[in-house]
Design a binder for these strands. Structure first.
Length: 432
DNA sequence: TCTGGGGTCCTAGGACCC
DNA sequence: TCTGGGGTCCTAGGACCC
């Protein structure tokens, strides 16, 4: 029997970054593996063995040093080039199963089958095929959760991982099944319920996904705004969130980094901010976009006692949208000079580009640069990007972005870019 | 000593206008 | 002494996600 609402699947990679590392290094099999955030800060991905050791998600490395040493945990700096490429491969395999696919994050995709004619059995069989093929073709193991809404497919995916008997595939299409199962899922596992909302919900007796589904949507709206109403409806099987086959156009682009050591001098902070603006410019140009708004910011140690914290930021609306690195760097530096304070030891800074518009559709402003200057800038940027693409990042860059890079952080455990750099391809050799 | 980075959406509240 | 009301636009900040 066909479903009244067509099925949506959430397919996600298990321990994705850790799994990517494992695909190319068989000696990691069965061993605890963690992948660190930028600057070798926190554990952002953990193999099942690492989870079993009690290493929490987001644990700072310095807090788990002893555990790592005692159990021979293999530690990796984030290798985002590798993960991005593996992600693309997984999506390629998934596209064989339906054209209606929304890439949600580096390790998650929603899939939809608007005309699905089968029932529960056919659906679970489809899930098993997806799992099997992705694993065989990419080496990544995935979980598959089906539901009539995105929120329910997320919850089904949670069950697929949590309940061994499901073998990685679960469905919440059936409302009777939901009535039983949702009552056992803690409220904070629901997509959209975070660390602020969860305690508020619990305080009013909503402890499980089932309790949430039982709420009156109107009441949920009064207490938790539209966000709350959507949560309730979605958990009940009423789709409120759109399915986006095409990625929505980007609205902003951020480049930010924590520093390897505190930065107090204005010159060094300016250098860092210039490097970030340069990178942000590359990012938007690669998508044919230009920015109307530039913001720079920096803060001192966010974990310091309240009185010792400092964060500065400033933004500026450009006369006309631009993606010219020279202009972006200049604005970012000027803004930074404005909020810099002597004596503050900055721990992190960033540049945000917003008001992004399609470069092809810019109407020249009366106060902007003439079309000749724009033309020249465009060609210069194109030449710089081409060089950097061919010869490697930062072959050409603004001098303001600095050569010393004293602010740069650590990345001391990075694995090779196995799949995207010729000189880092895996080699196979015979064992003598 | 050491605590990620990059996004989106929503709301409250101020500025401004008529 | 008494001192409008309503709409829109923008920004900052909060909350959430992975």
């Amino acid at each position: 029997m066909a479903f009244s609402t067509p099925p949506i699947a959430l397919v996600d990679g298990n321990n994705f970054f850790a799994s990517c590392e494992r695909v190319f290094d068989p000696t990691l099999k069965g061993r605890p593996v963690i992948v660190l955030s930028n600057n070798d800060g926190c554990a952002v991905a953990r193999s099942p063995e690492a989870k079993a050791l009690g290493i929490p998600m987001g644990a700072p490395l310095f807090k788990i040093k002893d555990l790592v040493a005692a159990h021979g945990v293999r530690v990796f700096s984030g290798n985002y080039e590798l993960y991005g490429d593996m992600s693309r491969r997984v999506v390629e395999v998934l596209r064989d199963f339906t054209p209606d696919l929304e890439v949600y994050s580096v390790d998650e995709s929603f899939l939809a089958w608007p005309g699905f004619a089968g029932g529960e059995d056919e659906l679970l069989a489809l899930g098993a095929r997806i799992r099997d093929r992705v694993e065989r073709w990419t080496g990544i193991s995935v979980g598959v959760g089906f539901g009539p809404t995105k929120t329910l497919s997320k919850l089904a995916n949670y069950l697929a991982k949590k309940v061994r008997a499901f073998e990685g595939v679960a469905s919440l299409m059936d409302s009777r099944v939901r009535a039983q199962v949702l009552a056992q899922i803690p409220i904070d596992e629901v997509w959209g319920v975070g660390r602020r909302l969860a305690p508020r919900l619990i305080a009013m007796g909503v402890r499980t996904a089932g309790d949430l589904a039982a709420l009156d949507p109107k009441k949920a709206r009064r207490v938790f705004t539209v966000v709350g109403e959507r949560l309730v409806r979605e958990t009940n099987g009423q789709p409120c969130l759109d399915f986006d086959d095409l990625p929505a156009p980007r609205q902003s682009a951020v480049v930010s980094r924590s520093f390897g050591r505190p930065v107090a001098s204005l010159d060094e902070l300016l250098e860092a901010v210039a490097a970030f603006a340069h990178r942000a410019g590359e990012k938007i140009r690669s998508e044919g976009l230009a920015a109307s708004y530039v913001q720079a910011y920096a803060d001192a140690n966010r974990f310091a006692p309240l009185g010792e914290r400092y964060s500065g930021s400033a933004g500026f609306h450009l006369a006309e949208p631009s993606s010219d690195t020279r202009l972006l760097v200049g604005e970012a530096r000027r803004l930074t000079e404005g909020f810099w304070r002597p004596g503050v030891r900055f721990a992190r800074a960033g540049v945000l580009l917003a008001g992004l518009v399609d470069e092809a559709q810019i109407t020249p402003s009366l106060f902007g640069r003439g079309s000749l200057a724009r033309d020249k800038a465009e060609r210069l940027m194109a030449a710089m990007d081409a060089l950097n693409n061919r010869m490697g990042r930062d072959t050409v860059k603004p001098l303001a972005a600095g050569l010393a890079k004293v602010w740069q952080g650590k990345s001391s455990h990075r694995s090779p870019a196995w799949t995207t750099r010729w000189d880092e391809l895996p080699t196979v050799r015979a064992i003598p």
